[in-house]
Design a protein around this nucleic acid. Sequence first.
RNA 1: GUGGAUGUAGCUCAGCUGGUAGAGCUCCGGAUUGUGGUUCCGGCGGUCGUGGGUUCGAGCCCCAUCAUCCACCCCA
Length: 430
Amino acid sequence: MKVRGPKGTYDVLPADQPLRELVRTTAAAIFSSAGYQRIGTPAFEDTGLFERGVGSSSDIVRKEMYTFEDKGGRSLTLKPEGTAPVVRAYIQHGMHKLPQPVKLWYAERMYRFENPQAGRFREHYQLGAEAIGSGDPSLDAEMIMMLSDLYEALEVPGVELRLGSMGCPACREPFQKELSSFLDERAGAFCPDCLERARLNPLRVFDCKVEQCVAELERAPLLVDSLCQSCQDDFSALRGYLDSLGRSYRVDGTLVRGFDYYTKTTFEFECARLGAQKGIGGGGRYDRLVEELGGAATPAVGFGTGLERIVLALESEGISVPEVGIGVFLVTMGPEARELVVPLVHRLRQEGLSVDMDYAGRKMKGQMKQADRLGAAFTVIIGEEEIAAGKAAVKDMGSGRQEQVPLARLEDEIVLRLTQDGADGQKGSR
RNA sequence: GUGGAUGUAGCUCAGCUGGUAGAGCUCCGGAUUGUGGUUCCGGCGGUCGUGGGUUCGAGCCCCAUCAUCCACCCCA
């Protein structure tokens, strides 16, 4: 192997495109029907945006960012997540003056310096949405349903929803103290990772999978049980909405999301088909982020979902999108035929038809084979005999029927055949 | 950053106790002096990840290194 793409990256080959395209267009339709408009943000941002936004205690900021200095001495970072850039754009463009909430969605590449594994890459593609400017739990429900509808529309198998609440500063801080003292009392019972978490961000101990720790945590206090009145009200309102929407979910007091900015609602969709990295999408409310990034105090909620993980889940079901073949393939033999066909191919393409010809010097048989591989609906054969007779052979690749068409009428005949309904070739449909 | 598995043709893989490489698929051609999807035949294609070592001799053994996959951490 001489050359390779960088670790954790992948190429999207032609065969991979249709399914990804399907996911993107399905998402775009669902998001826009809920009034979300697409926004694009730069591939890189000032490093400080993520340090302040995502939070310096998060793993992402501590060890996963692609940070570099540009020639002007600025510290920049390839974006590891989508929310902070969108919030930055909201503030920068004065979107607080627009009718609230401002609803935005994005499809962007994200970068994290992690070791790759199933469903995890250093560059990945994320679809996400943010609704900024309302704290109403019905908006949380809208967000959750958009994601849920996306998975449903795509028929992603085995998707489950977990729901939790991170509370607000008013209830979280006292709770963290309570949890910390619980952890301190039993310090001996936890693994070294958990002791580290207890110091940095106690809530993260709930992520631990070590049996001993999990057992010990059975008796730990849960944040969902000690929410303040306001957080409790919002949480039960959200649950009411989800119930009436018929969206099933599991309340999980141990659901903790990785970014420091989350408040109140957190949610995560999991897919059992995915292996260890089974989180397929998730999000939550971040009522303090806009303010922390320098805007006015503004509540907001959002989610992100990984395109690769959706595709992986779909592929585990053997789902494939049929490839569409080309319209017509022009088979030529001899220089005269090529002289005639090169401009003809160009004119037909200008008509918007999908047309191809041989560029590899294949013999006739090889050209027919190529036409078949490309899924051509029709083949036009022009050789010395045809030139001499002033006619071309037009062959229907489905039926195998072939007829002679005068060269003078050939172009009109091709246009006619290809603009009829269903004239597109269909690969693999014979 | 850590652990395990794996690295042989473009792809999927075989290669017995070490004797300097093979199949299937793909591609090109022939069987059908100008007609596809089936079949048969032929051809193109390999520094056996890389660098050392042991040996008369290494794809096979040893060491190192890199990469890939999976898992941990964490996340989409």
